[in-house]
């Protein structure tokens, strides 16, 4: 997630403190001087990870510190799992298989590599699922397991989430 704020003296420190207080992880602080901007007012971008559900609290704390948040970037889905499927993937409607995950609204298939060796031979695919949190990932994988069972697809799960 990306936060943009006006840079006035002391604001950067004031902005960073609540992030760590809420268990967030600061990935980058981009401090870019724009030619048109004046010395006392700069734009600062902070890229950060924050445990789910704490964004509102962060914004309140920033406001209390007098930090003026200009814009909040897109929330990214940080949990990711790659799984491998083996079976007659096309004949069992691969787009439906993917759709069952996408349809949940809390997880989505963001990447897929498919290998189809020969007609009638089982194909193999690696799919990457993303979700906002671990619980949603677990639910998404449970759905995929049920679909795989129904369609006679072998599903190879990762030992650990990546």
């Amino acid at each position: 997630m990306k936060l943009e704020m006006r840079d006035t003296p002391g604001q950067l420190v004031a902005a960073l403190k609540p992030i760590s207080a809420l268990g967030g992880n600061i990935i980058a602080v981009i401090h870019q001087r724009d030619a048109s901007s004046t010395a006392e007012s700069l734009d600062v971008q902070i890229v950060l990870e924050l445990p789910e559900g704490r964004l509102d609290r962060l914004l309140e704390m920033l406001k209390a510190e007098g930090v003026n948040v200009v814009r909040i970037g897109e929330e990214r889905l940080l949990h990711m799992s790659s799984l491998i499927l083996i079976g007659h993937l096309m004949h069992t409607d691969l787009s439906d298989t993917v759709d069952r995950i996408d349809r949940t609204g809390f997880a989505e298939v963001t990447e897929m590599s498919l290998v189809m060796p020969a007609i009638n031979a089982p194909s193999s695919a690696r799919i990457t699922i993303r979700s906002v949190n671990a619980e949603d990932m677990r639910k998404a994988i449970d759905i995929l397991r049920a679909v795989a069972d129904q369609k006679d697809i072998l599903i190879i799960e990762p030992l650990e989430e990546m």
Binding site: I84, S113, P117, S124, R126, L154, I156, L159
Partner: peptide, 25 residues
């Protein structure tokens, strides 16, 4: 229990692309 008898070389290659492999655990 799921065995390894249905695994394809493609599946191992797909795992390899991510610096992973497949083992019966």
């Amino acid at each position: 229990t799921t065995g390894i008898d249905l695994l394809t070389p493609d599946a191992l290659r797909l795992a390899d692309e991510q610096d992973c492999t497949i083992r019966l655990i």
